[in-house]
Design a protein around this nucleic acid. Structure first.
Lengths: 211, 211
DNA sequence: CTGTAAAAATGACCGCAGTCGAATTGTATA
DNA sequence: TATACAATTCGACTGCGGTCATTTTTACAG
């Protein structure tokens, strides 16, 4: 690694650290690039040689964090627990990381779910890692009979992920206090597994299997 | 209604119309308030006497639109259809409206789900109307035995709403083409009703259901 | 119609995100 | 070490969102 690359990495980290502390201190909108640059001890223009724009400072940080989580989870994952337990661990871990730096997490969720048209998403590799964590768990779940075998793994993921989004949103909007997040997520995950309609045995099977 | 109020309403509509066309033409970020003002035939400062900031132009529009939808739905709703059918109609209607003006919808979803801390949400009345539409349908569903009676109506709503968010996000991120939205939503709604885990009694029932 | 006070409209102004060409620093070759 | 070249840094500059003191319009009493 040349001196150049080394300096570049160092500066990038300095920018991120300045940005994180300033964003959490004063909020995203109340922090100027000039401030970040000053705190990092560099010129304003230099910030833009490391990040395309203000938003991508957030993306850079969050994607870096998320990748760390995923690597952690792959190492930690306990193949023997139930799907419910493992999903709870995964999404609660992600929730904690996303909301640890409130401002960063908020802007990341926005960009990830409803991105600017111009920002062509480069999350594909991140997504791949995501699925690398989830799919083995779900597959095992299918083999163990915890999950219906006729369902696409992608669709199963969709249910858990969508509930994760909702819970996170509820936390951000203040409808759900931090203390209630885990309970809510567990409840909703269980309901997703069991279904909203009554068990077929007791009731009209035909209606549940309508097409 | 005084002449003042009348003029004010007229100008507000003029601003919105200019904003809608410019946003859809050039995108939100590439449209300046000055442009909107010029097109509406007023001064720049006047825009700010009708809207607190650029974002609230979007909110004003979308909340107005959503209220229209809700009123429509209350009138239209067919109490005799299944919960699945009614939910599909409601959320597909909302999807169509939200995505009709792509840019507006995107920014509205962002604000609704992950709002700025400073913007204290005033969506409570909008939410109330929302529940006024949904709860009767779900209640009827419980009475008819389509939905488990032990579930909180709010939680049932959560499942459908979260899937709606996911599908909408998938559309905005380009993962789901417009043509695939309804199919995806129906599939996911059915799965939410039936549950992700196999029916307790037998394993084969699940396989007869859905695709 | 006139005077007047409140309401509304306005655009100059401020601080910021992002750009760009010039200046500086690192690298390679002789 | 000297020189040429590429990468990096920089801050003055542009156009924008949002503010505010000033001007213009409206409502109404005398």
């Amino acid at each position: 690694m040349s001196i150049r690359e080394l300096k570049k990495q160092k500066k990038k980290r300095a920018i991120l650290e300045s940005a994180i502390s300033l964003f959490n201190e004063n909020g995203y909108d109340n922090t100027s690039i000039a401030q970040i640059a000053r705190k990092a001890g560099i010129g304003k223009g230099t910030v833009y040689s490391h990040f395309n724009n203000k938003k991508s400072i957030i993306q850079g940080f969050c994607e870096y964090e998320l990748e760390k989580i995923h690597n952690q989870l792959i190492a930690q994952s306990n193949r023997d627990s139930s799907v419910l337990e493992q999903m709870l661990i995964i999404y609660m871990t992600e929730f904690e990381h996303v909301t640890k730096n409130r401002e960063f997490g908020r802007l990341y969720m926005r960009e990830a779910l409803f991105p600017d048209d111009e920002d062509q998403r480069n999350t594909s590799d991140l997504e791949k890692k995501y699925f690398d964590v989830l799919f083995p768990i779900l597959q095992k779940g299918q083999e163990r009979g915890e999950l219906r075998k006729d369902l696409d793994l992608l669709h199963i993921t969709a249910h858990f992920y969508s509930l994760y989004i909702l819970v996170t949103s509820s936390w951000y909007t203040g409808r759900l206090p931090t203390s209630g997040v885990k309970v809510a997520m567990e409840l909703l995950f269980k309901q997703a597994l069991n279904g909203l309609s009554p068990a077929p045995a007791t009731n009209t099977i035909g209606e549940n299997c309508n097409d």
